[in-house]
Design a protein around this nucleic acid. Sequence first.
DNA 1: AGTATTGTACTAGATAAATAGTACAATGTT
DNA 2: AACATTGTACTATTTATCTAGTACAATACT
Lengths: 126, 126
Amino acid sequence: MFEFRLDTRSGVPFYRQIIDQIRFGIATGQLRMGEQLPTVRSLAVQLKVNLNTVIKAYKELEIQKILETQQGTGTFIGSETVNVSAKERRNKTKSICEEFVNVAAVYGITPKQLIEELQKNEGGNL
Amino acid sequence: MFEFRLDTRSGVPFYRQIIDQIRFGIATGQLRMGEQLPTVRSLAVQLKVNLNTVIKAYKELEIQKILETQQGTGTFIGSETVNVSAKERRNKTKSICEEFVNVAAVYGITPKQLIEELQKNEGGNL
DNA sequence: AGTATTGTACTAGATAAATAGTACAATGTT
DNA sequence: AACATTGTACTATTTATCTAGTACAATACT
């Protein structure tokens, strides 16, 4: 199942984080055409945000034809292909790395040490 | 010279982007102790944001002792270092990396890609 | 038909963020 | 002493975001 995850510290609006995660989820094949998303109410509860916040995210994606909604039934991944550009992916990767390097720096952990730690776990994964 | 760059689309507040970039700059060695930052006015002009936005960023970093300011002179990178035990650091490194990998996974970014991105910034540092 | 579940449409209010503008204070230079 | 440059301290306004709450509409199920 697809997992949403909000970063409350980043300053990025919740609805935008939801949008991004769905878009990236589709782009990377984690979410597939026709698949049902959590209902607006359940996702709101799950992420501990207001109903309207989820609605705002779903609605924007529906306008872009990335999602299809049926009142009374639910919200589904549409047939529109999502292209997350290489540039956008790079930016996302970069911003995530920046944030973590910053967090690590607070504890005196250098980027080099982060790399080493990540490489340790490189063996036993996908 | 250090280059600032605001992403107007990300939804991340400007002052936070400035903060993050300075912290990242220090963590990666691009900004060094004692180095002078742009003046609040010049950076405001450069980034096309309001004076208060830059002030807010600088001030928060000053509270954290990451920056040092002298009225009439300018704002400089401070000398703050954090001391943590080796054991504590190892644990912290591990937990940060775990979190890091999980967040990245939401966006379909693999650990391998994270390592590559981190290595990019490895060149220009201590 | 009745009920539960789904999405939709509102209004209202709180807080955060950014802009705009003015005035003041400390430092360095001339 | 005069001036320019630096950071500081305000106030006011606008916009975006999020929360809260209510009511309604469409669909599926019993």
